[in-house]
Amino acid sequence: MKEKNLYDSWLDHSLSEEERESLQNDEQFLVFEKITQAAQYFRSPELDVSSSYDRLLSDLESKNKITSWRTYAASIAAILMIGFLTYTTVFSEQPSNYSSQIGEKLAIELPLKSRVQLNAGASLSYDKTIWKKSREVTLQGEAFFDVTPGASFKVTTTDAIIVVTGTKFNVAQHEDYLTVACYEGSIAVQIGNMSYSLEKGQQITLINSKLEHENVAIPNPSWINNKSYFKSTPLTFILDELARQYELDLETDSVDKSVIFTGSFTHENLDTALQSISIPLKLSYTIEGTKVRLVKEN
């Protein structure tokens, strides 16, 4: 009976040292200890709570996307369709196209003295013939606009239409990623069927269909000064930008690209840039020619 109690305490992890001593020669106890030893080999794999929680959050965000995304897509498709039809029937002249290569930045002078700077891997087109009546450009990638006052100036991207009169603003449009920041005056941003107005120093981001308002303190977008700055952005978009700034072939198999990153990297030195990204995220990297491999540090 006494022994039964001892076993109960042992099983409830409340056995005292002396009690344990007294069981030391008990054959059955030794068998139980051996079973306990053996059971350790079948321990459940460790769940990394914090990283799995981050993954959950990004899953939840992409779930929200499904409903809102479809409505966006439908309206964008409709706009594009109407635009395309009008365009092909009314105008026959090709629009002017500009695009910047990987690692290249481009400054463009638009008619009537408006200026655009294209970040690496961006393209912009507009139609000269109707410029006097309507200033409209289409943008893919990132660009900083300095628009002279006048009739309305319109920038169309995949996710948004931005309308301004005369001001400075920056637009970055990549897949599932949009930021619009206003550096002077005010601008109106239309996303789907919602309209937002931004004043100087305000920014709007739409990442994986999640909309966020932020403030920007600097007078120019950071990329103008050869630096890419990101705030709470999933790693995948940072790596996309890296691949636009540097000619490279990125390999990231083991890396969780949904982790959130805040920080910046330079456009002037690949090694420094990779360090800025990999150190805070505990990654390590190797460079062989244009091949860059990012791996999780152990």
């Binding site: 992890h13 079948f42 321990r43």
Partner: peptide, 8 residues
């Protein structure tokens, strides 16, 4: 059993 013996 596992929660008790392995995870303590």
């Amino acid at each position: 059993f596992m929660m008790n013996r392995v995870e303590g």
